[in-house]
Design a protein around this nucleic acid. Structure first.
Lengths: 334, 334
DNA sequence: AGCATCCCTGTAAGCGTTTGCAAGTTGACG
DNA sequence: CGTCAACTTGCAAACGCTTACAGGGATGCT
């Protein structure tokens, strides 16, 4: 089913059909009607591949994320997609499951699709990939990884600041034994988060004890990491979780171990995903404005005039502590 | 950056480059090396549009879902995608937010992309869309909507059976005042679910009272619907929620109203999404094998020989009750 | 009637790949 | 050293669409 078939049936040239389909030049009303009729009768749909190839334009954006299951990423995607649709763009998503190999292949796939902009919202990185991407003729925006360049912009959230605020707050509440639950510590950005925690802990040297544990991203991972923590014998009065998604599982494990939250143990998450309001009790967390990040990504990829983006920008976002009900005074604190 | 550029740099014809890139014919080792070197140096990535157009093959599948935020859909997607990758396919997702208009445009987009198979996992439908899709030269598999045809297969879960099992169980536990919380009652398949509930209720006519409420899909929707229910003055001892995702909010609203689960009110969900184990208490629900559905979809779209699929099949799946801790004896039941 | 104008429509040249066919090279063998 | 098969490589025609350019019919004006 191609343009030619429609053209034949409508007794016009394929050019005319193309024109009515794209509204790209005036066509006599009677002709237009005939064409439209043929299109409908034949259930014709223009071949997007041919169209893109011929037209030279491409109105799709690509987005690569680490874990679509984690609502954090999905929220960014939705914000980006919403902007995109408003401007006639489509968004293609790819999921890497935190695997650098899949990151590379996903990005290559996107390049093959000649997306007109690429948002890479991941925590893993491949050493040679950055080199390959830098200076390319392709607009890219990174979150959490990567460095700015002519064609690359970055969105940065100071994870550390969020951790500091959290720890300070917990310290003031009397907590002196804290633990950090993370995931994928093999990946630099994720290990850095753990380091942020440790560095902050060191500032209270002598006053606080701490431990860390890790498992995969997700509720189950949070649960397993917590179990591991508890089995190690360390008894934290506060657990700082790398993100809300894992915190769901931390809460469950605590509950099942007979530990009350926050009476016995305080818990904090990170991201402030929608679900964090629905945990029991509602989760204290650090807000990362995912919608804003999505919009930022779109702006950087599409809106910014070619002059501005010519020099990659760096956007900084400050996280804010959101105190809900999983945190309270440390047990025994005066 | 095109084949020609690579060819020039490697001092060969574009045909040769194409051949080494696709391993589609023997190429002298020295030549191959030269080509590969040029490819790397130029950071060349084949244009997928041109490739698909010329090659006539397309190894992408399309998937359209109602609400990616609801883990139910995401689980199916992941299962499908996993199979797809194993067989060298890609999967493109589109989200409709339960809007028939977006369903139509998403499907048209997929047809434009000439996907080699299309999975439509939605609850909304457009009257003329079915007609348009039937008999098309395009493999399609529907879940929840649509009817089989030459090119269309269907996956069906008897929602009603799940509801019946749930209600029977609750009835045995002494519950006599039940409520149903749903969403998007404007859409037939979703209204049917409510009807399943009502019909089941009617079988206990005289013995039970019931009510229904609805809001949008998601925890917040569940919360709002529950609030509305409670404000109506009706005091159910059991709430049957259309899906687990909404049940998250139902639990929260109950908790905030000072109602204990399951002591005062029992709650059941539907789908058995991963999160349902992490609610507090863990959610009694009805299992729908999402992974199986994803695999089924892939098989129907890709694996089934052209003979088999020539006559659209219908797959039936039976849901199973999974009893966890949000359900118990009705208050005051002997 | 002659001619410039405006509309509408068609012709044909790409867009970047794949691929059937044919030509050129190489090497083994007699 | 000639012959032929086996390897390699290149040429050119699609793939389905967009678009610059040109052509043809009305229309309006002189």
């Amino acid at each position: 089913m191609k343009l030619e078939d429609v053209a034949r049936r409508a007794r016009v040239s394929i050019t005319t059909v193309s024109r009515v389909l794209n509204n790209t030049a005036p066509v006599k009303n009677s002709t237009r009607a005939r064409v439209l009729k043929a299109v409908k009768e034949l259930r014709y749909h223009p071949n997007l591949y041919a169209r893109t190839l011929a037209g030279g334009k491409n109105s799709t954006l690509g987005m690569v994320v680490s874990n679509l299951e984690n609502p954090f990423f999905l929220d960014i995607f939705r914000a980006l997609e919403s902007d995109a649709h408003q401007h006639g763009y489509e968004v293609l998503v790819a999921n890497t499951d935190y695997s650098p190999r899949r990151l590379v292949s996903s990005i290559h796939l996107m390049m093959g699709r000649r997306v007109s902009g690429l948002a890479v919202i991941v925590s893993e990185m491949d050493p040679s990939l950055m080199r390959e991407l830098t200076g390319l003729n392709q607009r890219i925006i990174f979150y959490d990884v990567g460095r700015p360049a002519r064609n690359i912009s970055n969105i940065r959230v100071s994870y550390e600041k969020g951790i500091q605020k959290t720890v300070e707050y917990l310290y003031l509440m009397g907590h002196r034994r804290m633990a950090f639950v993370g995931h994928h510590t093999g990946l630099t950005p994720l290990l850095d988060r753990e380091k942020s925690f440790i560095d902050t802990m060191k500032r209270y040297k002598g006053e606080v004890e701490y431990a860390t544990a890790a498992d995969h991203d997700g509720p189950r991972g949070g649960q397993l990491a917590t179990r591991q923590l508890l089995e190690s014998g360390f008894r934290p009065t506060a657990i700082i979780v790398i993100n809300d998604f894992m915190a769901l599982g931390v809460l469950k494990e605590l509950r099942e171990s007979g530990l009350r939250v926050p009476a016995d143990v305080s818990v904090t998450g990170y991201d402030n995903i929608g679900l964090s309001e629905f945990t029991c009790p509602p989760l204290t967390t650090v807000n990362i404005p995912r919608v804003e990040i999505g919009h930022l990504a779109f702006d950087a990829l599409v809106l910014q005039g070619d002059e501005t983006w010519a020099r990659g920008r760096e956007f900084r976002i400050n996280p804010e502590l959101v105190i809900r009900e999983t945190t309270g005074a440390a047990p025994g604190a005066r």
